[in-house]
């Protein structure tokens, strides 16, 4: 079972690398591709956590639908232009980076000094059972039925809103 920590370290390193690449690439298309890589990493991590359905959805919805939409918009608007902008690393960005690292430090501090308990060491025994399509489907269509319906309504509203916002104003 030593393979699992190794796999985790590999995936974690890959995820952090793609995330950093995403924010330092000056070409938005490259950023988008890095993010897609990141999402694949996360899908793999979900699998390690025995969340089968979410791993599939992560790839289908995020890597598939959302990122395709983003890339599509980048192409549509022909946005390669940030490259041409001068690099201005002003006061605001400096403060932003400092604060970002400050946040990271605080979260790390929190993790390091939280007392360990036994249940944090191992996956729960039920973990393989709850991540299945069957278990999720049962939960969503019974316990979470009402939120699910609301989500459907939300998506409908989003579709209508997106069409109205993006369509060309008629003269």
């Amino acid at each position: 079972m030593t393979a699992e920590p190794l796999l985790f370290l590999f995936l974690a390193a890959f995820a952090v690398t793609t995330a950093v690449l995403m924010i330092i690439q000056r070409n938005p298309v490259m950023s988008a591709i890095s993010l897609i890589g990141n999402f694949f990493c996360l899908a793999a991590l979900y699998l390690m956590l025995r969340a089968q359905l979410l791993a599939v959805l992560q790839i289908a919805v995020y890597a598939g639908a959302i990122m395709v939409l983003v890339v599509f918009v980048i192409m549509l608007l022909n946005l390669g232009d940030e490259i041409k902008l001068p690099v201005r690393f002003g006061f605001r960005r400096t403060v932003g980076v400092v604060l970002g690292f400050g946040l990271l430090l605080e979260l790390t501090y929190l993790l390091l000094f939280t007392p360990e308990t036994a249940e944090h060491e191992m996956l729960h025994a039920d973990a393989p059972l709850i991540g299945t399509v069957e278990a999720m489907g049962t939960a969503l269509y019974s316990q979470y039925l009402f939120p699910l319906q609301l989500t459907g309504l939300l998506l409908l509203a989003a579709v209508v809103g997106a069409v109205i916002l993006a369509k060309r104003r008629l003269p």
């Binding site: 403060v95 400050g102 946040l103 605080e106 979260l107």
Partner: peptide, 13 residues
Amino acid sequence: ILVFLFGVVAVIG
């Protein structure tokens, strides 16, 4: 967002 983040960091701190 910067001001907001400052607030978050300060509160957590």
